[in-house]
């Protein structure tokens, strides 16, 4: 039995038939796909909100949060983690402008973007850059928030403090 295996291992490499380029299961329903994609993202966002007690769309901690959130100025975090205005200025101001214009209308939640990593929540772009330089004394200063990239919708990006009222300069 083993003998046979060895001489035939190579046949394995063509399990399929015909050209590799092929459609396996028929046409894709684009409209449905789009709907499912939006729903899946929405669900992810909700899960992340529950997990971290943070509303990533409005950039506000939730009332029921298990965590105590505090603001960290954007200048204190590595460039990679900055988003919104600061991040985009590095890469493409154009895209940012389009994004903020579309939100000034108020209704557009996720403008079409040509890059996968452009933030989907452009409201953040409207925050005042100057304020980001100031370290807020209290976390009630909710207007002073640093921005997040899209990736942080899934991961903790802001500093969280559990059990202690405030830690500065950490």
């Amino acid at each position: 039995m083993c003998r046979m295996m060895a001489t035939n291992v190579r046949i394995l490499r063509r399990l399929g038939s015909g050209p590799t380029r092929r459609n396996l299961f028929g046409p894709v329903d684009r409209e449905q796909l789009r709907v499912e994609y939006q729903a899946a993202l929405q669900k992810d966002l909700e899960e992340a909100s529950r997990r971290w007690g943070f509303d990533f769309l409005s950039d506000e901690p939730l009332e029921s949060s298990d965590f105590q959130w505090e603001c960290v100025p954007g200048t204190k975090v590595p460039l990679l983690y900055r988003s919104g205005k600061q991040g985009l200025d590095q890469r493409g101001r154009q895209t940012f402008r389009e994004a903020s214009v579309s939100t000034s209308g108020g209704s557009v939640k996720s403008p079409p973007c040509d890059k996968e990593n452009i933030p989907r929540t452009p409201e953040r772009c409207l925050l005042n850059l100057k304020n980001l330089e100031i370290t807020p004394e209290r976390r009630e200063n909710t207007g002073l928030k640093r921005k997040q990239t899209n990736i942080t919708d899934f991961y903790q990006a802001k500093r969280r403090v559990v059990g202690t009222p405030r830690k500065s300069g950490e």
Binding site: C2, M5, N8, V9, I11, L12, L15
Partner: peptide, 12 residues
Amino acid sequence: ERVLVSNLREGR
């Protein structure tokens, strides 16, 4: 080994 054999048979 069994999976290999059945794959080979199919391949043939």
